[in-house]
Design a protein around this nucleic acid. Structure first.
Length: 738
DNA sequence: AGCACGCCGACT
DNA sequence: GTCGGCGTGCTC
């Protein structure tokens, strides 16, 4: 036992979630034999004034400790009897910390669900939960219309096909009792031994391409490979996933399925539960802390073989890891955009390599990065070209709106098309990536515009709420009637937002039901689901929305889709814009139509002969991607080069630039001229939320050289005197500027 | 990141 | 005379 005269001979090196890129040394807790402490266990430690939860990274001999022993404190408590993270997990986290140049303690924290970060015990919570019975699944909510409370609850259960925790059902106590008595709902019991109840899925029809893809991945189970499954909407990617998963389950392996958006999880969850009679856990931001803890522990303990999750599920420990699937791999939400800025796609591949398992990336519109890796024979391309079942290729129409009469962003020809479609009783989908009423309020008298006082951005008009709101910092004020500059001029909205278009649509189509889907209308919990039901039931005539419409959901009764403004995507400072636009066009087109009602996709543009657009529409996404890749190659841009972006911000207007100038002065001796240094330049939005922002871009055709420079340079940045006045962060493989 | 300490303006 | 503004420095 340790006492004052006899200090313990071992020291714990602990990773603590603070933005400091080093480990902290502690004595083991008093009365603790350090020999029983293994790397990967959580430990609570006094840190400054606070107590923090860290992870033991390694145990060293006290004679090897570099810190003055007098400064060392005792750790408080070892929180886990066994490590929660396995050897491969620790290796992956270390790699990620180095690759993204982000402190290890914070990287490790992202591997844990919040409850474990807070030091709560790693014990499965056995909160009772309820789920629909077979008859409950078959009954339509309509049949309960005389009992509206029960009907609402039934609908709730249908939206959460897995199970609902009893705590979440507290407000529905009486309705729950009624549904239990009717046998529509029962207490949900997690199957204890999955192997016993596993049933081999029924043999399904796979077409030759699907068969080939399934066999290719199945044959590769047990060793590392990356496959890119490229299949148009309706080509049956999910079926391919499920048949591969079935084989992995047969082999007793665990499968991690990553999706970009939580809105896609319920659909896929439902299909998976119908197919697989094994525990399936979900992990995404809509779950509460204890649900996430349970899901994580189910995988970590090997109790569940399938996890469906978003980016944050990536690091879940998998004792029997067999396969990682990443669906919609091109989606930018796989990149974390703050703090530890990692790409879930790239880390998934690194993880699979360490675990020696295959990765399957799926998309109708793969990223140029992935297609480039196919060209370089790093990834294997598996193509699904046939549209399964009732799907049919939509017809594209470039609508030249130059000199055309417009009503709130809608050209006359488009309005005519809308009338024709609606007359046939079919639905119309309109797409505009700008929410609010209008992006600017301008004075007709003096030219004053509604600038945000804290950002280099305009305040957006939200007419319904009578507010002006900055979409970059959240600052808002009430809508003003009189120009604050000249006091006399008339204030006018300038430009289009979804709210304004909705208003115009109400005037143009007075008898039609219009549904607007954007962040403003779907903020309320469950409202998105409500709108989607309205659309699927056929009640909605015109569906209007932003980016969120482009993802996942298929609307078979929509036969006319219009993208109202594609020109901003054709002419952007960001070199990713054309790729993103092409992906968006193809994805949006995939939302609509079916065999008996072919979809019609209209693109409003003032650049009808833009080469990118022409190639995309005449030769398809693959041809577009090849041309776009060629251009990136010639311009020396990613994916043919590697980038790291150093972002800096400060209250002080001059400090960011001064810091970056100092950085540039220390680079040349480390660099040997191999890395292009672009900048310092003001960030595209030079002031945001009151902060002045600058950036420096480092670029190289060799990833290794770039990382060598970063490894050498970053430790020196903190030492610069200019660093004291700024906050800086590094984004490795950035996908947007600052 | 927190959270201290530490010196200069508007209030009981 | 104080309360509190955020500049600077530290965390085993």
């Amino acid at each position: 036992m340790a006492n004052r005269d006899n200090p313990p001979n071992q020291i714990l090196q602990i990773a603590i979630p603070v933005p400091l890129d080093r480990l902290f040394d502690y004595w083991p807790p008093r009365q603790y034999a350090s020999s029983t402490i293994a790397p990967g266990v959580r430990v609570s430690v006094p840190f400054g004034k606070a107590t923090k939860t860290g992870v033991v990274w390694r145990v060293i001999e006290s004679k090897d400790c570099k810190v003055d022993p007098k400064r060392l404190k005792h750790a408080e408590e070892i929180l886990d009897a066994e490590p929660l993270l396995f050897f491969h997990d620790l290796r992956l986290l270390e790699w990620a910390s180095r690759y993204y140049h982000h402190p290890l303690g914070e990287v490790i924290a992202t591997a844990f669900p919040v409850a474990l970060r807070q030091g709560k015990p790693a014990i499965l919570q056995h909160e009772s939960s309820y789920a629909l019975t077979e008859s409950g699944r078959q009954i339509e909510p309509e049949q309960l219309k005389r009992a509206p409370k029960q009907q609402a609850l039934l609908t709730l259960f249908r939206e959460h096909p897995s199970a609902i925790a009893s705590s979440a059902l507290a407000p529905h106590k009486t309705a729950l009792k009624a549904l239990l008595e009717k046998g529509l709902v029962q207490e949900h019991i997690e199957p204890a031994r999955p192997a016993d109840i596993f049933e081999k899925p029924k043999a399904l029809l796979a077409n030759p391409e699907q068969r080939q893809a399934i066999e290719a991945v199945v044959a590769g189970l047990g060793r590392f490979s990356v496959s890119l499954l490229q299949g148009v909407t309706g080509s049956g990617k999910t079926e391919v996933y499920m048949q591969i998963i079935a084989e992995a389950l047969q082999q007793g392996l665990q499968v991690l399925v990553l999706l970009p958006e939580i809105t896609l999880t319920p659909q896929l969850e439902q299909r998976f539960r119908q197919r697989f009679k094994v525990p399936i856990v979900c992990f995404h931001s809509k779950l509460n802390d204890s649900q996430r803890l349970n899901a994580w522990l189910h995988m970590q303990q090997g109790r569940a073989p399938i996890m469906l999750g978003t980016r944050s599920a990536l690091f879940t420990p998998l004792p029997r890891a067999g396969l990682i699937i990443l669906d919609e791999e091109h989606d930018s939400s796989f990149k974390q955009q703050e703090g530890f800025r990692f790409s879930a796609r790239d880390v998934a591949i690194a993880r699979a390599k360490m675990l020696n398992i295959p990765v399957l990336l799926g998309s109708a519109t793969p990223s140029l990065e992935s297609l480039f890796n196919v060209q370089r024979n790093r990834y294997r391309l598996l193509e699904l070209s046939a549209r399964a079942g009732n799907a049919v290729e939509p017809e594209f129409q470039v609508l030249d709106i130059r000199n055309k009469a417009m009503q709130a962003g809608l050209s006359e020809p488009l309005i005519t098309l809308m009338h024709n479609t609606l007359e046939k009783g079919q639905q119309v989908l309109l797409f505009l990536n700008r929410r609010g009423f209008a992006p600017v309020l301008i004075c007709h008298g003096c030219g004053w515009v509604s600038r945000c006082i804290r950002c280099d951005a305009n305040m957006v008009i939200h007419a319904g709420e009578r507010r002006l709101r900055c979409h970059h910092c959240g600052f808002e004020q009430s809508l003003i009637n009189r120009c604050p500059a000249c006091g006399t001029g008339e204030l006018q909205p300038l430009g289009m937002g979804t709210e304004r278009i909705e208003q115009t649509l109400t005037d143009l189509f007075p008898n039609k039901l219009i549904v607007r889907l954007d962040r403003d209308t779907t903020q309320r919990k469950g409202s998105l689901e409500g709108y989607l039901r309205q659309i699927h039931s056929g009640h909605a005539d015109i569906i209007l929305g932003t980016q969120m419409l482009a993802k996942g959901h298929h609307f078979p009764d929509v036969t006319l889709v219009a993208i109202l403004d594609i020109d901003s995507g054709l002419f952007s400072v960001d070199f990713h814009a054309a790729e993103k636009l092409a992906q968006m066009i193809v994805q949006v087109a995939g939302r609509a139509g079916r065999a008996d009602k072919r979809g019609h996709v209209v693109l409003q543009t003032r650049q009808p002969h833009h080469p990118m657009l022409t190639i995309l529409l005449s030769q398809g996404y693959q041809a577009f991607a090849q041309v776009a890749l060629q251009e990136r190659k010639q311009a020396g841009l990613p994916p043919c080069a590697y980038q790291a972006l150093l972002r800096v911000h400060a209250n002080n207007a001059l400090a960011p630039q001064q810091f970056l100038q100092a950085v540039c002065q220390l680079l040349p001796p480390l660099n040997a001229g191999r890395i292009q240094v672009l900048g310092p330049v003001p960030a595209p939005m030079a002031r945001r939320a009151g902060q002045f922002r600058f950036q420096l871009l480092l670029q190289s055709p060799q990833r290794k050289a770039l990382h060598q420079l970063l490894d050498a340079a970053l430790p020196l940045l903190a030492e610069l005197k200019e660093a004291k006045k700024v906050r800086w962060s590094l984004d490795v493989d950035p996908i947007d500027l600052y």
